[in-house]
Simulated scan of single mutants.
Amino acid sequence: MRMIVEDAMTSKVISVTAATPFKEIAQALITGGISAVPVVDDDGHVIGMVSEADLLRKEEFREQFHREDYRPPLRARLRHPKGRQKAAGDTAAALMTSPPIVISAAASVVSAARLMQARDVRRLAVVDGNGCLVGIVSRRDLVKVFLRDDDKIAAEVRDDVLGRALWLDTSGVGVEVLQGVVTLSGQVDRRTEAGMAVRLAGRVNGVVDVIDRLSWKRDDVAVSAGRRR
């Protein structure tokens, strides 16, 4: 029911090796219309990532410190050691950011979104169980999840959430979806069933929000609370 990274990622990935020259990396980015490229070893393991920003360090450092043959003082050079290294780099090995931030193809798209947020990156290299490159997932790929058709969302909520996961009689429950917002209405047997229906509906791919208009015949939550007292 929950979409995993493998469902959202781009599987046709342009990659480079540690020995790939600067200009070939730039050409790969331009030709592929991408902003970063993973660096892999001979066995396909991801060892780093080179982005447009990494390539631009060369021009940025040159402009900042070396215009008109100016050589910065030692203090300034020591303050930007990584910038100097990448500015001087001519291959992926020198330019890449390593270790790379990767995610498993079996991880949820929610996990991918949280990792991007935490590490402030726009894309993640996707790896299999052996750590080998199998795809790339970007913020744009994750946003596409919310473009899912309303009818498909409604069918999944009705059939998978209510029918299979909760084993509810759906004849008394209405499911409407508009622009990704799910409205659940009608009556179920127990209050706990209503709560579970709302929570599980909210986990369906493409759901933006859930409006709860369900009622119930038996308040089993109040009964349980009374017994605990």
Rank of each mutant, 00 (worst) to 15 (best):
V175W: 02
V143Q: 08
R75N: 02
M116E: 10
K152A: 03
T20R: 07
T17M: 07
A112H: 03
A222N: 01
V143D: 03
K144P: 00
G33Q: 04
M49Y: 07
E193R: 13
L214G: 03
G174S: 14
V210R: 03
A94D: 12
K58V: 06
G131F: 07
R227H: 05
M49I: 15
V46Y: 09
G195K: 10
A94C: 12
K152Q: 15
S171H: 12
F61R: 14
L200I: 04
L124D: 06
V207D: 09
Y70D: 15
Q187K: 14
R139K: 12
I14S: 09
G186A: 03
V134H: 05
V175L: 12
D209H: 04
D120K: 13
A28T: 05
T10P: 08
L56Q: 11
A19G: 13
A8P: 08
D42A: 15
G32M: 00
D7T: 09
G163W: 09
G89C: 11
T31S: 14
A107D: 13
L214E: 02
V37C: 06
V175R: 05
A19C: 04
A105V: 11
N130V: 00
I14H: 07
D169N: 15
R203G: 01
K82F: 06
I25Q: 00
L142A: 01
D128T: 00
T97F: 02
L184T: 11
I103E: 12
H45V: 08
G163F: 07
P99W: 10
P21Q: 13
V161R: 09
I211F: 05
L184F: 10
S185V: 14
D128P: 04
A105M: 09
G135Q: 08
D90L: 13
L200H: 05
T97N: 07
V145E: 08
V221I: 12
V40R: 02
S11E: 15
A87V: 03
R199H: 09
S51D: 12
L142Y: 01
Q187G: 06
A76N: 07
F65D: 00
M116N: 10
E193C: 13
L55A: 08
D219P: 01
R2S: 10
G163S: 13
I4M: 10
A201Q: 01
E176T: 11
T31R: 11
